[in-house]
Amino acid sequence: MTKNIMIVGVGGQGTLLTSRIIGKAALAEGYDVKISEVHGMAQRGGSVVTFVRFGDKVFEPVVEEGCADVIIAFERLEAKRYSHFLKKDGVLIVNDCKIEPMTVVIGAAEYPEGILESLSDKHRVYAIDGAKIAKELGNSKVLNSVVLGFGASHIGFSEERWLDTVAATVPPKTVDINKAAFCRGYNFK
């Protein structure tokens, strides 16, 4: 059975690194893994999506509409944009933050209100304020590890497997704080 994970957010939020950590962890578990990334123009503050698929044998490198087991959204509006990719019982992890797209800033569109509430009507939604926890840990840059940790608790694998993978992926000087951030997310209720 193939597991389908999506990481969505705004270009520059670190979705690429998050998907690579998930892919590495799945590889270490012995699965066949495919990761699909976004490079180039969309990375400049646009809506970005990366895919991780793992299982006994994976063909397609992307996750399709109606197939996502878990979506990790780094921003509320992006959670909404990609929510239709979820399976019927899929899980939507949302970093509870708002980044207004330029269309909203210049008044050409409105940022929807009550995104989490309306998504919760249809999906299993779990939200976390990653920025707040990262700030408590004293480094706003570890937000990704907090959100990854929260998402990881819905993907599977042992906490040790995740921590080993995080340690092997992030810059050596930041291993401890990223592991701490991951644990805060992983154990967040």
Partner: peptide
């Protein structure tokens, strides 16, 4: 495989 309808969301171009 699609189950849910696509949601309206303001565009976020690069």
């Amino acid at each position: 495989e699609a189950v849910f309808d696509k949601q309206d969301a303001p565009a976020r171009p690069p």
